[in-house]
Simulated assay, not measured.
Amino acid sequence: MRDFCGGEILRPAITRFVINYIALNSLLKRRDGLKSDQWLSSHFATSHDGQEVEGLVNNSNFWSRINKIV
């Protein structure tokens, strides 16, 4: 995942209460990397789990909710 997005999506936080914000904010920053051609050509994109993740990444409602939370 690090290769697709240009960095870590999750990273350790000082408190457990901040980790959710950090994770969501990191996802927003790396949103374009999650839709890369490199992902589409990987074997993970054709797996069942990969298709579920791709469904979330392509869901505009998912991104609008993350935007509101952050």
Rank of each mutant, 00 (worst) to 15 (best):
L24E: 07
A45K: 12
D32A: 14
L28D: 00
H48G: 07
F17D: 12
I19Q: 00
N67Q: 13
I69M: 12
G33T: 06
I9N: 06
H43W: 10
R30M: 06
V57R: 05
Q51H: 12
N58P: 05
L56P: 03
N25H: 04
G6E: 09
N25I: 04
E8T: 01
S64M: 13
F17K: 07
Y21K: 06
I9V: 14
R2S: 09
V57A: 08
V57S: 11
G6W: 11
L10M: 04
A45E: 09
S64C: 09
F62A: 10
E54R: 00
R2W: 08
N61Q: 05
N20D: 06
S42G: 03
Q38F: 11
T46I: 10
I9E: 03
M1N: 01
S26K: 01
G55A: 15
F4P: 01
S26H: 03
D32P: 07
Q51S: 06
S36G: 13
N58T: 13
K68R: 11
S47T: 15
G50Y: 06
A13C: 15
Y21Q: 14
R30E: 05
S60I: 07
L40D: 13
S47R: 15
R2D: 08
S64P: 01
G55S: 15
D32H: 13
G50H: 04
V57T: 00
N20F: 08
N59A: 02
R11H: 13
L10H: 10
L56R: 15
R65V: 07
